Simulated scan of single mutants.
Amino acid sequence: MINEYENTLRRLIINILGGEDKDVAKYKVTDNRINQWIEKRNIEQKKNNGILFENRIIFYSDFYDLQTIIDKNWESFLPVLNDKKRWLVFFQEVEKYRNTIAHGRQLVKSQEDLLSGIVMDLKNNITIFHNKNNMKEDFFIEIIRVSDNLGNSWSRSVFNRSKTPVLREGDEYEINIEANDPKDREIEYWIFSLGLSLNIVQKSSKFNFTLDSKLVGRNTVLGIQARTPEADYKNEDTLNFRICVLPKEVV
Rank of each mutant, 00 (worst) to 15 (best):
T164G: 00
Q45G: 01
K46E: 14
I2H: 08
N73Q: 03
S213D: 14
R33K: 14
H103L: 05
S116V: 00
A179P: 03
I224S: 07
A179D: 06
I200L: 08
S197Q: 09
Y27K: 08
D31F: 03
S61M: 04
E236T: 06
S205I: 00
S162R: 09
L167R: 15
N235R: 06
Y233R: 07
D148C: 06
H103S: 07
D237G: 06
N49M: 07
L194F: 11
I38W: 01
E95Q: 15
N149W: 07
T228V: 11
Q111I: 00
Q92G: 00
Y233T: 02
E186D: 15
A226G: 09
L52C: 09
K132H: 09
F129E: 07
K132I: 06
G104Y: 06
P79E: 02
L222F: 14
L211G: 06
E44Q: 08
K46N: 09
L81P: 07
D65S: 05
R86G: 05
K96R: 15
L88M: 12
Y97F: 14
T8N: 14
E186N: 14
G104Q: 09
Y60R: 00
K96M: 13
F209S: 06
G217R: 09
V80E: 03
D23V: 00
E44G: 11
V29E: 06
V201T: 15
I14E: 15
I175T: 02
T127M: 09
R227G: 00
G195V: 10
P182T: 10
R41C: 02
M120N: 10
N73M: 07
H130S: 11
V108N: 14
R145C: 10
N152V: 03
S110I: 08
Q67Y: 15
T100W: 03
W190F: 14
S213M: 09
V158H: 06
